[in-house]
């Protein structure tokens, strides 16, 4: 089955992106596909390569980048939400791309299920 995933909160403050990541990993382990992960609202903050969490904490951003690299997952950051919050190509982490909200609607159309994580 093809999954779309929407992430609406940034890293560390809310659990949403952690839940989304664990869910994404589980879908892949079960042999499903991830059509796209779309980051919206403060979720765009998952895409900054400038985060530096303490050594003993998980690196939420790097974890998404790694998942994208290993499984070829399309990580899309909403351009309007990103520019509002200072996320742009200059500070974008590997594996992410910036595009329009249409990518979310398209994921809703193309994926068999769209699962939303937020606050």
């Amino acid at each position: 089955m093809k999954f779309g995933i929407m992430v609406n909160e940034g890293p560390y403050t809310h659990q949403a992106t952690d839940s989304a990541y664990q869910f994404a990993k589980a879908t892949l382990e079960k042999g499903h596909q991830i059509y796209r992960v779309f980051f919206y609202h403060d979720g765009v903050n998952n895409a900054t390569r400038l985060t530096e969490p303490p050594q003993d904490d998980r690196n939420v951003v790097a974890r998404w980048s790694k998942l994208a690299e290993e499984h070829g997952i399309d990580l899309v950051v909403c351009v309007a939400a990103a520019l509002r919050r200072g996320i742009c190509d200059e500070n974008l982490a590997p594996g992410f791309r910036i595009s329009g909200l249409g990518q979310l609607v398209e994921a809703g159309i193309q994926a068999d299920r769209l699962v939303v994580f937020g606050d």
Binding site: M1, F23, K25, A26, T27, K30, H32, R113, V115
Partner: peptide, 11 residues
């Protein structure tokens, strides 16, 4: 359910 069970529920 664990995360795998979560996925199953969505399916």
């Amino acid at each position: 359910v664990d995360y795998g069970g979560f996925v199953d529920l969505v399916v």
